[in-house]
Simulated scan of single mutants.
Amino acid sequence: MNYILKTLNNRKFILGVWVLLALFLGFKQYHKGSYNNYLIFKHVYLHAVEHLNLYAAYPQEYGDTNHYGPFFSLLVAPFALLPDYLGTLFWQLANTLFLFFAIRQLPLAFKKVNAVYWIVAHELMTALFSFQFNISIAAIIVLTFAFIERGKNFWAAMLIMLGTFVKLYGIVGLAFFFFVKRKWNFILSCFCWALVFFVLPMIFFSPAYILQCYQDWYQSLAEKQQLNASLTSMQDISVMGMARRISGNVYLSNLPFLAGGLLLFALPYLRIKAYSDLNFRLLLLASTLIFTVIFSNSSESPTYIIAFVGVAIWFLVQQRPYQFWQIALFIFALLLTSFSPSDLFPKFVRENYIKPYSLKALPCLVVWLVIIYQMICSKFIQTKPVHAA
């Protein structure tokens, strides 16, 4: 038993498992011919080189359409230049290692960081099956928090702007603004990095083309919001999606849900004295990771790698010994959110209840509401950050 526990807490062993997951699933999906998302990403660069519309449909090349910003063309370029059999593997590996590195920077004890790795491993697999960039979005949010904790404003600002110019989600890193020391330095860094990411693609492709791309991007995102808000799409696994699909009313507006969600999200900021408590700040990180997903009608099953990192952090900052309801809620989230899309969950329940009603979002919503309650009502004392080794 001691040997098993020692192995599970061996950081090199965990890294080996994550790397094997990335390579195995990349290899498997490539040889199965199931790597459509990677083809979309690859062609963002190839189409930029040819000055084509990045957001038009190209059914002869891939299914669906691109919804990533013009800067993404440069980010994906090193992979797009490789043959697909190599590009797919390196893409999976790069996203996985980035998230592994980001989680390692969390100000948690060594064993708790290891627990985060194991808790999110299955959700990582779900994202790897579809070559998701959301693995790196989760890493960007976590690493932004870690850099702010360590006073590295310049690099935190870089990550926020990177995530924003690639997929907009990165903007949620500004949720940690009130924890920033030297705020004007941070603001200036954000503006500088925004300018860099805005201008850099113009150097490679031309200012006129990139400016047009930004207009096309805005249009594509607006159209995508309309398409996602349906009773049958693979997206809208969100609070709004649950409401629409359970009620059968496709015309339910996002606005009331977003307004209520933002109000609840903002309420803990009133507890200014609690900012000095590490657990309070970690709960805000967990809240941000979950909120980003459950209040977006663009969320699909693999997007939940972002939210489930938040669930793991929430569970691991709870005081020991765990109360029964905390363990029950965590298991509920593990089963319904993480395991439900897989063969580990009964197919009948998955196909007839989980998918049709977007119930993958339900445990994350409950966890998020608990986090908000804890941040508002719990007593917090000042603690010093404990950086993982």
Results as ranks from 00 to 15, higher is better:
Y3I: 11
K6R: 12
L8P: 07
N10Y: 04
I14N: 05
A22C: 11
F27S: 11
Y30D: 03
K32G: 09
Y35F: 15
L39H: 01
F41A: 13
G63S: 15
N66C: 14
F71Q: 00
F72V: 05
F72M: 07
F72K: 06
A77R: 15
P83K: 11
D84Q: 04
L86K: 09
G87T: 05
G87I: 02
F90M: 08
W91L: 06
Q92P: 15
Q92K: 11
F98N: 10
F100W: 03
A102N: 04
Q105T: 13
Q105F: 06
L106Y: 08
L106K: 11
V116S: 03
H122N: 12
H122C: 10
L124E: 01
L128D: 00
F133Q: 01
A139Q: 04
I140Q: 01
L143R: 05
I148Q: 04
E149Q: 14
E149R: 09
L159F: 05
T164S: 07
L168P: 13
I171Q: 02
F177W: 12
K181S: 12
K183C: 08
K183T: 10
N185Q: 15
I187G: 14
F191P: 11
W193K: 00
V199Q: 10
F204C: 09
P207I: 13
P207S: 15
Y214Q: 09
Q215S: 14
D216C: 11
A222M: 13
S233K: 06
M240Q: 15
G241Y: 05
G241L: 07
M242H: 06
R244H: 03
G248T: 09
G248S: 06
N249W: 10
N249A: 12
L252Q: 06
L252S: 04
P256G: 12
L263H: 02
F265C: 08
A266S: 13
P268Q: 01
R271W: 08
I272Y: 14
F280W: 05
L284Y: 02
L285F: 00
L285K: 00
A286L: 02
A286V: 00
S287I: 00
F295P: 06
N297Y: 04
I305L: 03
A307H: 06
A307V: 06
F308R: 02
F308P: 01
F308M: 09
G310S: 04
V317E: 03
Q318K: 15
P321T: 12
Q323M: 05
Q323P: 06
F324E: 02
I327K: 11
L335H: 08
L336V: 14
S338R: 00
P341C: 07
S342E: 03
R350P: 05
E351D: 12
E351V: 07
N352D: 04
Y357W: 10
P363K: 05
L369E: 04
V370R: 07
Y373R: 15
M375S: 11
K379A: 12
T383H: 11
A389E: 09
